[in-house]
Write a protein that binds this DNA or RNA. Structure first.
Lengths: 224, 224
DNA sequence: GCAAAAGTGTTGAGATTACACCCATGC
DNA sequence: GCATGGGTGTAATCTCAACACTTTTGC
């Protein structure tokens, strides 16, 4: 990354920040990185970086997350653009925030040279973050909850094969309330997006039928 | 406006564009300006401009629209940020699009020095616009239609006093279908946001009771 | 055989839709 | 007095929420 003197700039800089969510250990987690330098050194924040000329915003967000997680096919959508003049004390920086989803991240994380540390944090107990990233987190969570209700994006939080209990748990963890099992199953199956597989997941108790999505692309459907 | 050489820039510029809607002559209109210079000279576009250091995005959008229309209290919300590297052939420019609403604009418009012309255009028959502004228009219309259904933002398209027929017409024009008069009235009144006034609007036929909003601030309600 | 998760239907309440006639005014 | 838009109620349908017992497995 190039270091430059922005004090004489006449225009704001453009950065991209990515709020990456996942479900792990029965809780909703977000990916945070620890900042090395500047006024927020030592604080946690969402990963991000300046946009280069010729690079699209989506590409910048995707690149940023790929560097950290090694995940290529994640769900990614633009969230909101934060442009308050004081949000970055160093120089006026407009941050285009993205919102991303991945299935349970078993893989290893790479903090890279830029950050001191990296990790998954439970979304409902985030520490005090750098910049306006706590507001960003709140906004992203709100968007996630809303979109879960009227789209099929859960698919991006699930592995290829899953049980109905697992998909229901994701809904419960994200919208933060218990759902009626019978009503939920009826509704989710009525969408016609799930195909039962001729296999079961064997565990400690009665085996559960495994399902898979017929389409893994975003669309609007009435789920909740 | 300062003219500068951006060819050696290492970072994209930031601009704000505003899609301003209003209802006039029974149709949904958008405000367009005619561009004077550059590769899009002669084309219509949404009004916009570069963001200055120290200026927030919301302020920049508000300023832009105030210069053109003289309207101070409009409904304004961020829409989407367009960041494709090729969207502006002159230099990579990230455009933060805003979406705004005003009641029927009887007032005069000011094209200013920057633009060759200014005017209201029916949203469903826009000409070919500069940049990616046709996509911007489509996105804004979609947002408007959706928000009309689950918020009370109609208030920002109506004058202080209005009849139920007038508010219904706005819904019909925007969502582009006829609504049942009795069902619509029942539902909109059930929200408790409208107060009947002890006056009527006298016209060619039976006078209609005038209503006013009890609160003119955005909130979520189930309208449609 | 017992503990634990998987699987399955029905009923009542509330919401949504469809639909037709009388009323008040201006001309 | 007639043309025009304003104003009003009900019945049928659909959707949503609440609720409990049987089944299959591992140990």
């Amino acid at each position: 990354m190039r270091i430059a003197d922005y004090t004489n700039q006449t225009h704001p800089r453009v950065a991209v920040d990515a709020v990456l969510f996942s479900i792990a250990e029965g809780a909703l987690k977000a990916l945070l990185v620890k900042i090395k330098k500047g006024p927020f050194a030592g604080r946690w924040a969402f990963p991000g970086g300046l946009v280069q000329v010729g690079e699209s915003l989506d590409d910048a967000a995707r690149r940023e997350l790929y560097e950290k997680t090694g995940v290529q096919d994640l769900y990614l959508e633009q969230l909101y653009t934060f442009g308050d003049a004081q949000r970055d004390p160093t120089a006026h920086t407009v941050a285009v925030a993205y919102f991303a989803l991945v299935p349970d991240p078993g893989r290893t994380l790479h903090s890279g040279d830029k950050y001191a540390d990296i990790g998954w944090f439970p979304v409902r107990q985030l520490p005090q973050l750098a910049y306006d990233h706590n507001a960003m987190a709140a906004y992203a969570l709100q968007r996630l909850q809303a979109k879960l209700g009227y789209t099929n994006i859960v698919y991006s939080l699930l592995p290829r094969e899953f049980t109905l209990a697992e998909i229901q748990e994701i809904y419960e963890v994200i919208v933060d309330r218990k759902l009626d099992r019978r009503n939920f199953r009826r509704k989710i199956l009525a969408l016609g997006l799930l195909k039962p597989l001729p296999k079961t997941r064997r565990g400690a108790h009665r085996p559960a039928t495994l399902y898979t999505f017929t389409r893994r692309s975003p669309m609007n459907v009435e789920v909740l």
